[in-house]
Structures are given as structure tokens and as C-alpha cells.
Design a protein around this nucleic acid. Structure first.
Lengths: 206, 206
DNA sequence: GTCTATAACGGGATAGAC
DNA sequence: GTCTATCCCGTTATAGAC
């Protein structure tokens, strides 16, 4: 119908929105094709299956994020501080223009079993290794495993806020407002950087 | 068949395991009744629907956790410190004997739309308010909304680790071991307490 | 490339005998 | 309380006309 946007992109747009709002399992191909105003069979023509459709949805957003992350880390110089590293890691994620992608991102990263392993291997492992290395160099006294743990804590803290985006304002009586991204990044970086600087527990071998 | 465990409990046990392993949508009532070795119709007899079944699954585990949380907070005295409050909040959750409940807990708490609102209202809101209050009193200089944010960051950090429990060891080359719960609680409390003590950003009105 | 129509299946729920 | 049998619906995927 609307030739201005190709069928393939219309499907991706609609799938992104519906997966975000209702989840992957709860969204049928019919929901997607109705919303996108394309034919049901078009999904299986352009993508092979529903399963590989979400891969494309994810890849379309996650690749620019990772590019920006590495750019920002690069731009922070030879020996960036913890705050700089965390800012480079979080800003491209939280800065996404698309409202609806934020909860989806959070959900993908916190739903085990289905896509996490695949998404992690394809899109996250390189970046995670890179940032873990940078954090380890910024905090040389921290044991290697502790850096991993704290990176996981950080990812969880942020993705949780993204996942719960819709209901956090309600449960905090409107006190917490997710819309101000700069403030959110600032909040998260302060909190997490302090956590990274905490003394590690004495190791077992002592 | 096996009269030692009542039908109702056999259903709850099987549902808990399957929901944990495969997710709510991906688990059919037939999967549950086959695994529990009970009749298909038994689910709709004992519980009204699949939807209300998960409510019972959750309630059975979350109530003891919350009881212990409040007991530990109570036991920490009149003016507990940040570490004591966080320990009281996290220990009963991370201390669950049942391996399989930990990822399920993490998943429920990070899957929006379906049950979070209901679960939050019924099982979490009172406890969250109580701990937020305690943290606010322990850190009187912290703005009220900042306490909420940091509590959310904390919940996210821990639930994320629980959700990813199965794959974290693989992605960190075996460096991170979730099995030692005491060490995990200690790690999390150190990290999060330092985050809570970080200086808040200057407020907008300044 | 795009559509209609349908195949093939599995899901939740329930009626009614026991 | 427990079972069997079945209803009825929505799902993904595909065959085949245009």
C-alpha cells in the first residue's frame, strides 16, 4: 500500500513495537502483519521464520549501539577512568531515540533460554570483553572475576530499569521519571562507579 | 498414583520447574500434567486457569522470602546500616534452596506486562516500601527519589544475575560461580552499599 | 513479489461419566 | 476428586494462483 516504506522494514518496525509491548511469545505473526499492513505470508518470504525475524529486529538496533559504544571508549583515550568507561557503555543504550526499543532491549537481555545465548555470542561478547578489559585496567587491584561480577551487576541494574520502564513511575508515586535520559545515565554512572571502586572481599585463598 | 504427595502440590512442583526452565508461554498445561503424572483436567479443577496457576506458584515461594526479609530487618535493630539492610533484603532471596526457583524469580521480576504489576502489588509493594524507608533513614542526605532509583538498580543487579545463572559461568570462562551463595551475597552487598553511599547528582532546582 | 486459502498442529478449557 | 473425550480457537508455515 504505502510504497514509501518497503515491506521488509514495515515488518521490522511492527515486530519491534509488538515484541516490545507484549513479548515475543505473546505476539503472533498475524498481529505483526496486521499492524504492518502487509500480507501474512510476507514474513516467511522475507525472513525464514518467526524465530529468525527477532534476530533481524535485534541486530538492526544493537549494531549501531555497539559501534557507538566502541567509538566512545576509543574517544576516551588510552587510560579512561571508570566513569568514562561506564558512560561509554551505557550512553548509546539509554540514548536510543525509540521509546519502544528500550523495554525490548531490557527484556531480551533478561529472558534466558530463548535468544540470550545467541544474541550474546553474535552481538555482545566482543563488546563485553572489550569493556571488561578496560575496567580491569582502570581498577588494577580488582580481581579479574570481580570485574566480571560487577559488570554483570551493572548490566542488570540498567536493563532492569529499562524493562520496568512502564511501571516504575507508578510504583514510586511518580518520583522516578525515565524520560530524562541524561539524568538517568548520570545517576547510573554515579551509582555503578562507586560500586566498582568498593573494596573486594578478601579472596578465599587467604 | 503416588499418594504421598497431593495432586495439588505435584502440579505446583512440576509447574515451577517447567516455568523455570522454559518460561510461562512456552510451557503447556499438557507439559505440566504429564510431568506431574496427573490428569489434564486436574489443573483447571484445583486452580481455575493457567494464569492463576502461576500466581500460586509464585506466592508459595515469595511469601516465605518476604517473611524472612522482614524478620532480618527487624533483627537488625532500630537503625540498621546500609549493609545490614541490603543483606536482609538479598539473603532470603539468594538463599533459596531450590535451584530452579532462582531463574524463575529473576524472570518474573524482569518480564513486564504479564504478571509483574500483579505480583508487585500483591507480594512486593509492602516489602519494597519498608526497605526503601529503612534505606532512606540510613542515608538521610539522599533525596527520596534517589533512594528509589538505587533500590531499583539493586533489584536489577541481583535479579539479572539470577536470570543469567545458567550462562554466566560460560561467558566468563568459569570465573564466576553462582553456587557459593554466601560469597555472592557478600559481593552484591559490597557493590551495592558503595553505590548507595555515592554522592547524588546536584538536584535540578539548584 | 504479493496475495488467498488452507494444511497441520497444539493450545486452554470444559462437559459429563465415574 | 478424578478421569476421558472433545470443543473451539489461534498458531506457524506453505502451496499455488496471480
Amino acid at each position: 500500500m504505502n510504497i514509501s516504506v518497503p515491506t521488509k522494514d514495515r515488518i521490522l518496525d511492527a515486530a519491534e513495537k509488538l515484541f516490545s509491548d507484549n513479548g515475543f511469545d505473546a505476539t503472533s505473526l498475524r498481529d505483526i502483519t496486521t499492524s504492518a499492513q502487509v500480507n501474512l505470508a510476507a514474513v516467511n518470504y522475507h525472513f525464514q521464520s518467526k524465530d529468525s525475524l527477532i534476530d533481524s529486529v535485534i541486530a538492526r538496533r544493537i549494531e549501531p549501539i555497539n559501534r557507538k559504544r566502541l567509538e566512545m571508549l576509543e574517544a576516551a583515550g588510552e587510560n579512561p577512568g571508570v566513569e568514562q568507561i561506564l558512560t561509554a557503555f551505557l550512553t548509546p543504550l539509554l540514548d536510543l531515540e525509540l521509546e519502544c526499543m528500550l523495554p525490548l532491549m531490557g527484556r531480551i537481555l533478561s529472558t534466558p533460554g530463548q535468544f540470550v545465548e545467541r544474541v550474546y555470542r553474535r552481538h555482545l561478547s566482543v563488546v563485553a570483553q572489550r569493556f571488561r578489559g578496560a575496567l580491569g585496567r582502570a581498577l588494577p587491584e580488582l580481581p579479574e572475576d570481580e570485574v566480571w561480577w560487577r559488570l554483570h551487576f551493572s548490566i542488570g541494574a540498567v536493563t532492569h530499569v529499562l524493562s520496568w520502564g512502564q511501571i516504575i513511575p507508578a510504583m514510586t508515586d511518580g518520583m522516578c521519571d525515565l524520560r530524562d535520559r541524561r539524568a538517568l545515565i548520570d545517576r547510573a554512572v554515579r551509582f555503578l562507579a562507586a560500586g566498582f571502586r568498593a573494596a573486594a572481599a578478601p579472596s578465599k585463598s587467604n
